[in-house]
Simulated scan of single mutants.
Amino acid sequence: MPWVRLDDRFPTHRKVALLSDRAFRLYVSALCWSSENLTEGLILDRELTLVARLRGAKTAATELEEAKLWDRVDGGWSIHDYLEYNPDRSRVQADRAANAARQKAFRQRRAEREAEARNASSNAPHNGVTGDQYDAENDASATRTRHDGDTTALRTDSENRSSPQVDAFRNGVSNGPPSPPPSHTPSPTEKEQASRTREHGIPEQARPLVDALTANGVIVRWPFHGNEWFPLLALISRTGIPAMVDHATKVAARTSVESAKYFVPGWGELPPLPPPGDGRPALRTVDTPRPPLSPQAARRNESRNLLDNLAAQLRATGGTQ
């Protein structure tokens, strides 16, 4: 397929920029017509309506004449300097013939390669994993040098062959179904241990508090880790489980609580247990409504609670880390 060559400054050339739209379209269409039909830039009068289907084609041709883009010749027009930028008829025909020959040679080489591949496939063995004499003779283990006293010299089969009995024991493959693992029924003690394992991380000193809250319907998470348990254990020793459960139950009745850490600030404000031997009953908390705290007061309480927790942790650990 030939191509039409146009300079990248063609639309802005002084001869082209002043053309009307019809003349511009006729000129470009004439370039493509000449390249396709190998007219070498010649446009005949009778072919003018075929070059571009537009009204006033003759008027547009006259405009191209006046712009010196077309030259008037006998029987038509000639595109000015067409052969200076585009190949002539003989050059295009030679290129087409060379391209056709190149494509023909390529198709012929491809057909020959496909025929060789088909022949090689038809002459090859149908099964490369057969146990005939041909495979045994070509096997590396069958043709290797045999020495006196070599125990492998007695083997006549190729190493690729396998015996069903040998494979069954060597590879551990059997035809029977696999044996089910032995079943085990856990004892009540093992069930209790498994239940405690699911709640891993709760120390034994805090277990009575957890169980008491659960029995009263307060089921929360206990996201304490490591040293975070020390302040809670100190509160249990200082305040007592009954007062802590009573406080948590009342709080949980008013709002939804998901974590036990929500109760820690309130537990820290509970009164301590009376000294042993004074005969006085343990004090209980009095649930009195309190006005909402301002943000500043809430931050101060949070800081105070943090200091109280650290002090309780130091007391519980004997003042050492």
Rank of each mutant, 00 (worst) to 15 (best):
V166K: 08
Y134Q: 09
T59H: 04
G217E: 05
E159P: 05
P242Q: 07
Q313K: 13
A234Y: 15
L233I: 15
T317V: 08
T12P: 01
A206K: 09
G277D: 09
V92L: 14
R238T: 12
V4M: 07
L209E: 01
K58C: 07
F224L: 15
N37W: 10
D148Y: 06
D246V: 04
R170W: 03
D148F: 03
A105S: 13
P281S: 01
A248H: 09
A248T: 14
F224W: 15
K191G: 00
S35D: 04
Q313R: 08
D308N: 07
A153R: 09
P223Q: 09
E159T: 10
A297D: 15
M244V: 08
R161I: 00
F230L: 12
S162H: 11
G41K: 09
P272Q: 04
K250L: 03
G226E: 08
A252S: 15
L44I: 01
L233H: 01
Q133W: 10
E228V: 01
V51D: 07
D246Q: 14
R170N: 02
G279P: 04
P291W: 00
Y27A: 01
S34L: 02
V173P: 00
A248R: 12
Q321K: 10
P164G: 04
E258D: 11
N175E: 13
R113E: 12
P291Y: 00
K191Y: 00
V264P: 05
Q296R: 13
K68Q: 13
L50I: 10
A67W: 07
F224Y: 15
P177D: 10
G240L: 14
D45C: 04
L232H: 05
L83E: 03
P180D: 10
P292V: 02
S90V: 08
L232P: 02
Q133L: 13
T320F: 08
T239W: 01
D308E: 04
